[in-house]
């Protein structure tokens, strides 16, 4: 396991170097760089933070401050499928809380957690602007509207392809 981490660190470093090269000369690139690292690797591995800090001429602590400030950025890996329950106003008044509870029950985890097999992560999102379909659940990038606890069960059984 330890050896594997060492190898992946090397891979991460190469990926991050490429990303930094792409953003060379750009004004205020940090957030865009972090987003791209997360997009490519799935999260922002703590071991690449000093590398980014060095190239951008800022302190690693400042980067950590940015990562912890923004809810989208994360420094640990997620499940392969990310399920997000919308907690916008329309979703709240049309049963979003019940849907979130159903998701928690079905997956056996709370928001912000991943299942033990790393298949699923559960998160909440402020609003995806699809209020006409409330309550919404978002599986990776797909929005599933007018959710009910029964549809939640189907959704997870079929892994993101409800009928």
């Amino acid at each position: 396991m330890k050896g594997e981490t060492g190898t992946s660190t090397e891979v991460f470093r190469t990926v991050v170097q490429d990303i930094l090269d792409d953003h060379a000369g750009e004004s205020w690139p940090l957030i865009a760089v972090l987003q791209e690292i997360q997009h490519r690797i799935g999260y922002i591995p703590p071991e690449v933070v000093p590398l980014v800090a060095d190239r951008l001429g800022i302190f690693p602590g400042e980067i950590q401050g940015v990562i912890t400030f923004y809810s989208q950025l994360r420094d640990r890996p997620q499940g392969r499928t990310v399920i997000r329950a919308c907690r916008g106003t329309a979703c709240h008044v049309s049963g979003g809380t019940t849907v979130l509870k159903a998701l928690q029950g079905e997956l056996g985890i709370s928001e912000g957690e991943s299942t033990a097999d790393r298949q699923y992560s559960l998160e909440t999102v402020a609003c995806v602007g699809a209020c006409g379909l409330a309550p919404n659940v978002i599986v990776d990038d797909d929005v599933f509207g007018t959710m009910t606890p029964a549809k939640v069960r189907k959704l997870i059984e079929k892994d993101g392809e409800p009928s």
Binding site: I31, L34, V66, F69, S71, A126
Partner: peptide
């Protein structure tokens, strides 16, 4: 510039901070 999930960034001075890649 893409936001990264912070409601307060709709406030104009916070938004500027965020464009500058700060908290």
């Amino acid at each position: 510039k893409e936001g990264a999930g912070a409601f307060v960034c709709g406030e104009e001075t916070a938004l500027l901070q965020s464009i500058e890649s700060e908290r």
